[in-house]
Amino acid sequence: MSGTLYVVSTPIGHLEDITQRALRILGEVAVVAAEDTRRSGQLLDSLGISARLLSCHDHNEGERVGQFLNLLGEGQSIALVSDAGTPLVSDPGYRLVRACQDAGVPVVPVPGASAVLAALAVAGQPTDRFLFEGFLPSKGAAREQAVRAVLAQTATTVLFEAPHRLLALLEALERAGGGEREITLCRELTKHFETVLRMTVSALRARVAEDADQQRGEVVLVLSGAPAADVDDADLARLAPLLLAEMPVSRVAKLLAAYSGRKRQELYAWLETLTP
C-alpha cells in the first residue's frame, strides 16, 4: 500500500494557529518535506514534534520527486510544508503533487493558515471575486506591464511584495493611474506588530514613505478592482443570445457579470427566461 502525501498548512506567525489535525499528521508521518529545513525545524521544535526533515524547494524539487515517490511507494507518508502558511501558494510543491497524482498516490490537504485568506478577511474589500497575483516582476518593463494589467482587473486583487520593494510598487501603481484606487496594506499578519491600513494608493504611498516601520516584515496588499463598465440593458440583450448559442447559461451569466458588474444570480435568472 502506498503512503499518503499530506499538504499541510502551518502558521503564518502565531503558533496557536496550527490545527489539531496538522499537529497529528506532522507527528505521524515518516518525513516532512520542507521548503527550508531550518525554519521548519524550528517550528516543529516549538511544537514539540520530532520529525525527519528533507528539503523541497524551487532548486531541488525536480530531483527530490523520485526520492519522495520511492518513500511513498514503500508505504511511508510525507507531509509537505512551506516556510509559513499553505504550501503551493507562491511556494514550491506542485511538481511533487502532480507526480503523486500521476503515480496514484493519495494527496490530502490539511488546511489551515493562509496569508491570502487572512488578508482578504480583514482588508475591508469585496471578496465575492478576487484574483491572486502573488509577486509581480521586480523591475523594468515587465513590472510596468504587470501593474497596468492588475489595475485593469475589476476583481479585488491580492499581491505579495518584499518589504524593501513596497514603496516602489506603490509608486508604480500611482504612476499607472491607480493613485485614487483603494488598497489595504496587511503587514505582519498574526504577529506582534500586525498592521492593517486601508486607504488610497497615494495616501498609502505617502504613509509608507514617511514611516520606515511599514517597510519591514511580511507584506500582503489587497487592491480594489477597477470600476465595472457602464453597460446598459440593450448591450446585454444584444450579447446574451450570441453567447447562449455557444455556451451554457451558467457560463454566460459569469461572463456577463464580469463584463457589466451586475450580480451573476440576477443575470442567470434573466438568461433562463431567454432559453427554450
Rank of each mutant, 00 (worst) to 15 (best):
A234C: 03
V65R: 04
V7K: 00
L236S: 10
L117K: 03
L166N: 01
V110R: 05
G66H: 09
I78C: 13
Q265P: 07
A245G: 13
A203H: 12
A168P: 01
A79H: 12
I18P: 06
S224N: 07
T154I: 12
A118V: 05
E272I: 14
G85D: 11
E272F: 10
L72A: 03
A113G: 04
R129S: 09
S46Q: 12
R21V: 02
Q67F: 15
D36Q: 14
V7Y: 01
E16H: 03
F135K: 08
I49L: 15
D58T: 06
A253W: 15
D58N: 09
L80Q: 11
L80F: 13
T86Q: 13
V158D: 00
L120T: 01
M199I: 03
V196P: 03
E63L: 10
L23M: 13
L243W: 15
R24S: 11
T156C: 14
V219T: 14
L189A: 03
R181H: 08
G75V: 14
A146L: 12
L244N: 04
L5E: 11
A203Y: 06
D128I: 00
E171N: 09
C186K: 01
I183K: 07
A118K: 10
A51P: 08
V81S: 08
F193I: 00
T190E: 00
D17L: 13
A237S: 03
R187H: 05
A123I: 00
P126A: 15
L167G: 00
A212Y: 03
Y268D: 12
V97H: 10
L151D: 11
K254W: 15
H59I: 08
P87V: 08
V97S: 11
R21Y: 04
G62W: 09
R24V: 05
G75F: 15
E171Y: 09
S82C: 05
L44Y: 10
A176Y: 01
L239Q: 04
G178D: 07
I49F: 15
A257I: 04
L166S: 01
R251N: 06
R165C: 10
L15G: 03
E210S: 12
I25K: 02
L242R: 11
A152R: 08
R187L: 06
A209W: 14
G124W: 07
V122G: 02
A79V: 07
K139G: 00
T4Q: 15
A234L: 07
R143S: 02
T275C: 13
F132H: 00
K191V: 04
A22K: 03
V150P: 06
D230A: 13
